[in-house]
Design a protein around this nucleic acid. Structure first.
Lengths: 250, 250
DNA sequence: ATTATCTATAGATCTATAGATAATGC
DNA sequence: ATTATCTATAGATCTATAGATAATGC
């Protein structure tokens, strides 16, 4: 009986016309999930997974406590989901850069600069990245393989000189994380860590380019060339909106 | 009245003869504190400060629960104490190296190699170092200022070429932490992170020297010179025994 | 006598679930 | 009718302390 009514009433008029016709209900569901993810990011970026209670997350998300378990099995589960979201959108961005730009050295520089700029625009993203950057599995699943690939391309093209490629990747990974750490601390005007940060803060605006230039030097470019490549205009890349950013109104 | 008795009874006979005359009681006290510190290091290196319960620490230290509060006010307090111990002994080691070695490039290489070797010998020390390496205050209080000083020396001596010294320090700090992370993962034959780690594991024994060589390249030494300096024999340094190592028997 | 240690426990916090309520789709 | 959400709560865990016991120094 129920089946026949469903059949008769399907495809109402005003729906297929314009929007992708996402059922109102599932959109709501997705939004609640994103609220939880964003709240978790905000809290865990500062205090780490262990330092945050599920209760805090639901309160920050302004959602009933039990609702949490409609979306995630545990604190580990939501943390894993965060890691996935962060790495996926990050990886997608770097892939876009690699597509758009010809010169391998410029691809590398743009990737570094993109990372640092984004860390400045979204400090929570940056803090979280630093926090999980040395966690388990990141070497295989994260950005290291991608970077290894990009560096190989550069070496093959005669653009980079690197005697020890794997170790170079390790070094670059750490250097970038270290710069992200510094950058987010500068952005926050963080308590402590004056003295030193003030040294770098000379032209804080330039830290992405400065970092890129230093690392291009590591890859064998000479000083002037490195400085030049690090300042080329960045390609504009269009990312699909992240689940982790505030929802645009409208 | 109390004062006079103290004066009369001081300096008993059998004590000043041989040993440093540490009262048996205070030695015991020191040992208990070290047991707690070592247990905390073991647990917190893996799971971080928040992920460990005081109860676990006292159980691992084989000490009554309440005893904890005779030594530390809170979990934060024992964590802070750990950070101090780690940084102090680390800093002392690097200072010794800087004293013993003439060539600034060699000082730098030896410091990097020492760090990685120690991380391999004491994986807990290494994991903990990685964990706090991007924490608050480390830039001012930690090793960054020392490294900045060493690099300046090298630049002044014409041994290093670095256009952007602060950013170079940031990069080197991250690269070393990244290598320590890799190194401890290799040592543990950690779950996950194969694939990539296997790449580096080619000659895992050499990671300290390989890391030093790559970073000497970053500092402007040419390839052959870097490889040569990174392999010079290390100075032998004698450290005061750490509170964090297992107590030698006898 | 003094001091460190242990055991026991009160109170707080946190997780996971069950059952009630509200919102949506048909 | 179905599904998401909320409130309430039981049980587990954890912290901090109080009071009892053991060990040391004089």
């Amino acid at each position: 009986m129920a089946k026949t009514t469903t059949l008769a009433a399907s495809t109402p008029s005003g729906r297929a016309a314009d929007a992708p016709a996402e059922p109102r209900d599932s959109r709501r569901r997705r939004q609640t999930r994103n609220r939880l993810l964003r709240a978790a990011l905000r809290l865990m970026a500062d205090r780490g997974m262990e330092g945050v209670a599920i209760q805090e997350i639901t309160e920050a998300a302004d959602v009933g406590f039990g609702t949490f378990y409609n979306y995630f099995e545990s604190k580990e589960a939501i943390h894993d989901a965060l890691v996935s979201e962060v790495f996926e959108s990050f990886g997608a961005a770097l892939d876009l850069i690699a597509e758009r730009v010809e010169d391998p050295a410029e691809v590398f520089a743009a990737s570094v600069r993109y990372t640092l700029q984004r860390a400045q625009e979204e400090p929570l993203w940056g803090r979280f990245l630093v926090r999980v950057g040395f966690g388990p599995r990141v070497l295989d699943q994260g950005l290291a393989p991608r970077m290894l690939r990009d560096l190989k391309t550069g070496v093959a093209a005669g653009r980079f000189r690197a005697d020890d490629l794997p170790m170079t990747v390790i070094a670059v990974r750490g250097a970038v994380l270290s710069a992200v750490d510094l950058h987010t601390k500068l952005a926050n005007r963080d308590a402590g860590d004056r003295g030193f940060t003030d040294l770098v803060a000379g032209d804080r605006e330039r830290t992405p380019e400065r970092c890129a230039a230093v690392l291009l030097g590591l890859l064998g470019l000479d000083r002037d060339e490195a400085a030049r490549v690090a300042c080329r205009p960045l390609p504009t890349i269009e990312l699909p909106p992240s689940n982790l950013q505030s929802v645009p109104v409208g």
